[in-house]
């Protein structure tokens, strides 16, 4: 018995030893930063790197009462929700087709998926050149059809929708693949039973496939919202927040407060607010969509 205990202790010690790099890594790069950020958010000035004084909740009060911050939060919500909703609808439509028998199925999937794995730097470059008001091809094509061109990314009314469309273009292939996998995982017998009961294919899709896809939709919605609520690449690379701050997302606001103005305390409070917003939205999604998840 003693030897077994010895062996257990030995194995536990070895396990801790093997885990040491992971403990160091996650402590340094995940837990320490969050704690430090929370601490810094209660200071005015440049805590950690320079002069700062304790200011309680001043930074948070300033953030919440600042009109520009509220506007940035609102634009970010529109951007994240718009992108997520459009991506999921388009992806589901394409997946519904591609889960069935279609010629060149694998090639079509690969082509539509490909934009997902390239850098946003390229995405921005391609679309900015396509949409360039003077040399871009989109306006030239519109002109050929007698339509008026637009400065798509340079007009306050069209900039945010254009940014959403470009992000959807990049993201849609991933959501599509995940949906295809999920649709193909729905048991055949359910469709057979429905068809015996005289259900049309459309009825089968809306009353069998769609409800069974709820967990997939939840998964895709959560990861899309988390990544686009904090998206800095799209506004930084496409518009730099312009025109007239129409695409000034929250992330860009934080980035400038921290790395341009070096207002570390205030920027930390802004980041922490975003963290709370992300947690809250994720929680709401689980409550709202999670209830529809059935495990048939």
């Amino acid at each position: 018995m003693l030897s077994l205990n010895n062996w257990r202790t030995r194995q536990a010690l070895i396990a801790y030893g093997l885990l040491l790099p992971a403990i160091a890594y996650f402590a340094t790069y995940f837990f320490y930063p969050i704690v430090v950020e929370l601490w810094a958010s209660f200071y005015r000035g440049a805590p950690l790197i320079g002069e700062a004084r304790f200011a309680g909740f001043d930074n948070y009060v300033q953030a919440i009462t600042d009109e520009r911050v509220r506007r940035a939060l609102w634009i970010t919500l529109v951007y994240a929700v718009g992108t997520t909703a459009c991506t999921l609808v388009v992806a589901l439509g394409l997946a519904a087709i591609l889960a069935g028998p279609v010629r060149a199925n694998n090639m079509i999937r690969a082509i539509i998926f490909f934009p997902y794995i390239i850098s946003f730097v390229i995405v921005a470059l391609m679309w900015k050149s396509l949409l360039d008001p003077y040399t871009g091809i989109l306006n030239s094509i519109l002109f050929m059809f007698g339509l008026e061109g637009q400065n798509w990314l340079g007009t306050p009314q069209t900039a945010l929708p254009t940014m959403i469309a470009i992000t959807v273009w990049k993201d849609v292939g991933y959501a599509m693949l995940i949906y295809v996998a999920a649709i193909q995982g729905v048991p055949q017998t359910l469709y057979e039973a429905a068809s015996l009961d005289g259900a049309t294919r459309r009825q089968a899709f809306f009353s069998i496939t769609l409800p069974l896809l709820a967990p997939t939709t939840l998964f895709l919605a959560v990861i899309s919202m988390i990544s686009h609520l904090q998206d800095l690449s799209a506004p930084y690379l496409l518009t730099n927040g312009g025109p007239a701050n129409a695409t000034r997302l929250f992330s860009l606001h934080v980035y400038e407060a921290a790395f341009v103005e070096l207002n570390i305390g205030y920027a930390s409070a802004l980041s922490f607010l975003m963290f709370i917003v992300i947690l809250a939205i994720t929680f709401i999604q689980f409550r709202f969509l999670g209830r529809k998840v059935s495990y048939a």
Binding site: Y29, P33, I34, E37, A40, L232, M274, F275, I278
Partner: peptide
């Protein structure tokens, strides 16, 4: 998320 940890990580 990375963005949330960005400032302390930079420092």
């Amino acid at each position: 998320p990375f963005f949330i940890r960005m400032i302390p990580l930079y420092i």
